[in-house]
Nucleic acid binder design. Sequence first.
DNA 1: TATTGTTATACTCTATAACTATA
DNA 2: TATAGTTATAGAGTATAACAATA
Lengths: 158, 158
Amino acid sequence: MDMEARGRSEHPEALRLWLRLLTCTQLVEKQVRSQLREQFDTTLPRFDLMAQLERKPEGLKMNELSRRMMVTGGNITGITDQLVNEGLVERVEVTGDRRVCRVRLTPLGRSQFDAMARQHEGWIVAAFDGLAPPEVEALHRLLGKVKQHFNDTPLETA
Amino acid sequence: MDMEARGRSEHPEALRLWLRLLTCTQLVEKQVRSQLREQFDTTLPRFDLMAQLERKPEGLKMNELSRRMMVTGGNITGITDQLVNEGLVERVEVTGDRRVCRVRLTPLGRSQFDAMARQHEGWIVAAFDGLAPPEVEALHRLLGKVKQHFNDTPLETA
DNA sequence: TATTGTTATACTCTATAACTATA
DNA sequence: TATAGTTATAGAGTATAACAATA
């Protein structure tokens, strides 16, 4: 229940913040994973991939899926294969470059994703409804700065 | 790079917040995992388990480790076995209940953890140094409300 | 009977690297 | 040569459930 006992004795603010951030994410993520499993017999990466496609009717290249989902290419092939076998997404050839393919939702995939997304939205709203709207906004803004700083920083190896 | 394209078209605030929270956590977590691997040839769960023990010289029961790390018991046995084999932690019998054992850091484990924690702290400080101190504080406080709300809510299955 | 910890197992997710086919 | 995608593999990390010993 308390991952936050993890830091060193000095406990600088950044460390406390990180442990709490991790705890919150894990709480929500565990909830989402188990609900996806129970209610839809699916997994978070599969849901994520379909969610990436949902707003791109023309589909996305494997490349782009890999970058957006922050995992390497081989994994995208694997998840895509599963979803293709179940008829939820399809690979489409791209004219002009025969190495490339686009992946997009099938009508079945779209309707199934819509059903999942509706539930998913409910779980997420429930997870954060301890916050007032301005607090949600503030949290969103602050995390935006964290993300931005990461994008700006060349990821030092020291 | 942009997990946040994931939500539905309506994009209520809670959903946007969740996607950003997840993105930030994954960015930091990937960084920490790869540094732990490169610099100390260890993993995040192993580091976490040692961190739990660091502030408890008397050790923790397997039970307590399981609860704190939010994973089931069998996994705690596995990670503990590894660390015992490397001489970093030890199992201690508990008088009065022969089913129970406490796990605690060995002197070697403690000194090795200290070295890791020093580096770890640096990675975390770097991850959040795009925020001013009052912003760190605000973020910490808001996430505290999220966590609290989770603890208070009996985890509805609908 | 209930609890603590262990064992055995299966599955998902991941990165790496070698491979192919195109460019 | 370089790039897009695939294949093969190994290893984390996890949950589940059956089990032993003890309470």
